[in-house]
Design a protein around this nucleic acid. Structure first.
Length: 774
DNA sequence: AGCCTTGTCTTTTTT
DNA sequence: AGACAAGGCT
């Protein structure tokens, strides 16, 4: 059968290259999915490759499912068993470890194939427990920061001992201890976190020649999609799985690498030719998705990056409509503009599908609100997903505990939900004993010495809990998946707890549990057992919930990877939001933000809208702060853009917007740079931005600043809204200023304040007559 | 033990 | 606005 017709020469070459390493540099919209599916079909149908010996790795489970379906369709109704294996790296590793992981116990004591997967919540719970044990709190380091550093260490195969040895500061040294305990906690619970899934598969294949040989025989062709976003473990996995045949085909686009923060290493793709000197490289540079205008704009933006192989996409399509850039006075207006435009496009513009993309999930709320005002249905991808809801996690925790009593985090989660008299004090006592004895909580609950150490009430509560769980386990063993869940919810009293709860949320919680049962019923019909169901629940991703058929889709730009929409809105293009403030002082991170911008823009087929607000609230009730339009907007060639909305003239640059960064730094006491508070500095500020120095006095140079809200008396109260580093105040003579430093407390506090146009002033709180701005 | 109030801090992005 | 931890109250 012919899988080459309808392909361009480069695509054809990629499909026909069936032996040895192949790097496909596939630009956005260049038809790479088509190439991959056709190539797999070609291998199986024309080259005599056994279907299941082809492993194709995608980024999401949904993409995997779709790819498999497409291949099966191309192959004309073969049974799924004869098709390729398509999955994500994580799912693949889970299957590998569940199937052939026995030998891992040799290098990871206590490991069994019955392991539990710890998701982000479990990780968080474990790190909290670790902190508690070590007498630490978040002042030492935020939980998430610790987790992220541990994850980074794991991804670079740095052990706790390595970390300790390499440490040059006390914080890292202590973190190494946290790391060690965290690892201990995982092993104790026979649990693997997301990083471990990959890492343990790698270690197993490295360690055990038999298992590696087995997989080298099983697989003869390897294809990896989104290769630019693979990390070190995934790279190692690729190498280990392709020992011998080297039939590795990777597909990626360095301009779309957006997961560096999660350990993805862009060098994997940049250095592929070095890793495989015999590699063939094929570039797909014809874009079939977007108009010339959109493609040119996106290309111009990403061309500002230096870390790239460099390519220039081209298209046969016409220029289409100009990109619309909308300036809104505030975030609410921006949302309303988007909703209004969507309404017009869908009702009169003949459009069927629209996506709104943003940098952070929290941005969705305002846009949702605006869409609701128009009565327009929409789908939000990500944010709080089904499997993250408390009641779902509780139910799953019970199920996980049935399979693996060692699973401490699941036990902690449900041991007193519903309340059954095993409160904080008792749990702490149990944890302490567990730590001392190196036992898991379940076992500790059942030892005689624990019984002796605890009071009668605690003992009977624990006893009835363990007995109940044993009974459920007993009953569960004989049941099929959906009935099993039903049974668990009944016997544990979980459903009753919700039924007795008079609060309005309990209704929807019960609804969610029914949904979980329905999902289990479906899984049961597919022949899945409990373990598979739980694995699936642990590995679903937000992006799996995308429904491209929906009229209006809302999601982060990250979640939009690999998707396309006729109309795309990119919202919140403001420095500090997008690019995100965390990237502002790192060139590498800034380049990643720019790639993200490229990804966002290239999702659009025909129409692209870029919008930003001149002022925005940081969180719920905080005062709106002036913003600076995203630097990415300036990178879009002007002739491709139609600018509408409120336009500020070029000199209306907002110094206070710039000072948001300063303020943030001052608050955290990390500020070291200059302040734009003297005439010289202001002149420099304008120069750096290539704008002319305003004629007005600097004080008047910020006309966009919202009128100060009714100023409150500066009662020198502690905390927020009072006088503290970072807060904005009004001075009777100098006007608006930002407090950079505060020495002392109360009304005697000495304040160092930066005033626009007047520079730094030292003031004593009680004499200065300051007013805070809210 | 468990509930409720208060205060503090937060916001990236996610397999 | 919302999440979370700490502390106080019942």
């Amino acid at each position: 059968m012919d899988f080459l017709s309808g392909l361009n020469p480069q695509q054809r070459a990629a499909v026909e290259h069936v032996e040895g390493p192949l790097l496909i540099l596939a630009g956005a919209g260049s038809g790479k999915t088509r190439v991959i599916t056709h190539r797999i079909s070609h291998l199986i149908e024309n080259c005599g490759v056994y279907g299941p010996s082809v492993l194709a790795v995608t980024f999401t489970n949904k993409a995997a499912g779709e790819m498999k379906d497409r291949v099966l369709r191309l192959l004309g109704g073969r049974s799924p068993d004869a098709g390729p294996v398509v999955s994500t790296f994580h799912s693949f590793c889970v299957r590998l470890l569940r199937r052939d992981g026995e030998r891992l116990a040799e290098i990871r004591p206590g490991f069994t194939r019955n392991f539990t997967i710890y998701d982000e919540d479990d990780q968080l719970a474990l790190i909290k427990q670790t902190y508690r044990r070590l007498g630490l709190d978040e002042k030492f380091m935020q939980y998430r920061a610790a987790l992220s550093r541990i994850s980074h260490a794991k991804n670079h195969q740095t052990t706790p001992q390595d970390m300790h040895g390499q440490s040059t500061d006390p914080v890292t040294s202590r973190l190494a201890v946290v790391y060690e305990q965290y690892e201990g906690g995982l092993q104790q619970a026979n649990a693997l976190d997301f990083d471990d899934l990959l890492l343990m598969a790698v270690r197993l294949l490295r360690h055990d020649d038999g298992t590696r040989g087995l997989w080298n025989r099983r697989l003869s062709q390897l294809m990896i999609d989104e290769y630019q976003d693979t990390n070190r473990s995934q790279y190692d996995l690729m190498r280990l799985l392709s020992v011998g045949h080297q039939n590795v085909c990777v597909v990626g686009d360095e301009d779309q690498s957006i997961y560096g923060w999660r350990g993805a290493d862009i060098r994997n793709i940049l250095d592929f030719e070095r890793d495989y000197p015999k590699a063939t490289v094929i570039r797909l540079e014809q874009n079939y998705r977007s108009t010339k205008t959109i493609l040119e704009a996106a290309s111009a933006v990403v061309a500002n990056n230096t870390e790239r192989k460099g390519k220039w996409l081209w298209t046969d399509s016409g220029a289409g409509t100009p990109i619309v850039e909308y300036e809104a006075p505030d975030a609410e207006n921006e949302a309303l503009y988007i909703a209004d435009t969507i309404e017009k496009l869908l009702t009169r513009g003949g459009e069927k599908h629209v996506a709104v993309l943003y940098r952070t999930n929290s941005q969705s709320r305002q846009i949702e609100e605006a869409l609701r005002r128009y009565g327009r249905k929409y789908t939000v991808v990500g944010g709080f997903s089904f499997y993250q809801r408390a009641e779902i996690k509780d139910a799953l925790a019970y199920l996980k505990l049935l399979l693996s009593p060692q699973d401490n985090m699941s036990l902690l989660r449900i041991v007193n939900t519903p309340a059954r008299g095993i409160g904080k004090t008792t749990v702490e006592a149990l944890e302490k004993r567990a730590a001392e004895r190196g036992m898991n909580l379940w076992d500790v609950m059942q030892t005689e010495s624990t019984r002796e150490a605890l009071g009668a009430r605690a003992n009977s509560a624990i006893r009835s809990f363990t007995r109940m769980m044993e009974e459920v386990r007993e009953a569960a063993g004989r049941k099929r998946l959906p009935e099993l869940i039903h049974e668990v919810l009944e016997r544990t009293g979980y459903r009753k707890m919700l039924e007795d709860d008079p609060s309005p949320e309990s209704e929807s919680r019960l609804g969610n549990l029914s949904e979980l049962e329905a999902a289990a019923a479906e899984a049961g019909e597919r022949g899945e057992g409990l373990a598979e169901f739980l694995d699936h629940a642990a590995l679903v991703s937000d992006a799996d919930g995308v429904d491209e058929a929906a009229q209006v889709n809302l999601m982060t730009m990250h979640n939009a990877k690999g998707l396309e929409f006729p109309v795309v809105f990119l919202a919140g293009l403001e420095d500090g939001l997008f690019p995100h403030s965390r990237a502002l002082n790192s060139e590498a991170q800034m380049e990643e933000e720019r790639r993200l911008c490229y990804v966002g823009m290239t999702r659009a087929e025909r129409r692209l809208y870029l919008s930003y607000a001149r002022s925005r609230r940081r969180y719920g009730g905080s005062p709106p702060e002036p913003t600076i339009p995203s630097r990415f907007l300036r990178e879009v060639p002007g002739h491709l853009v139609e600018r509408i909305g409120q336009r500020s003239s070029p000199h209306e640059v907002d110094l206070f917007g710039e000072q948001a960064t300063v303020r943030e730094a001052a608050r955290k006491n990390t500020y070291t740079g200059k302040t734009y508070n003297s005439l010289d500095h202001i002149a420099q500020f304008f120069q750096e931005r290539g704008r002319s120095f305003p004629v007005q006095a600097p004080q008047a140079a910020a006309p966009m600043a919202p009128p100060p809200a009714a100023p409150k008396p500066a009662a020198a109260k502690k905390g927020r809204g009072g006088l503290s580093a970072g807060s904005v105040i009004q001075h009777p003579k100098y006007g608006r200023g930002t407090i950079l430093r505060k020495e002392g407390d109360g009304e005697d506090a000495k304040l160092t304040v930066s005033f626009q146009g007047y520079g730094l002033k030292k003031l004593i709180a009680k004499y200065a007559g300051l007013k805070t701005e809210e």
